[in-house]
Amino acid sequence: MLIPCPWCGDREDIEFKYGGAAQIAYPTDPEAADDAAWARYVFVRPNPKGKMAERWVHTAGCRRWFSLVRDTVTHEITPGRPGGKA
């Protein structure tokens, strides 16, 4: 699978490490979150069949984190942007 690094261009997937779902915001005030809300942040992640916003880091390259949208069925990738908030 070729992954489009926003800094280095298309590279083989072995150069990258997977960072899980994107768009999981760190709670602005963790201490204010109740147990259920905090557990959702820590443990609950989407696992769709289809398009998924993901974070990747170009570990064996520029070491930058970025986000993209990958179709988990076809591996079709829509480039995202630097950083991981997406």
Partner: peptide
């Protein structure tokens, strides 16, 4: 070592840019 650096970079780049 590698995992810690990745972990630090993750927070620095994604949450605390």
């Amino acid at each position: 070592a590698a995992a810690v650096l990745d972990w630090m970079e993750e927070w620095l780049q994604t949450e605390w840019p």
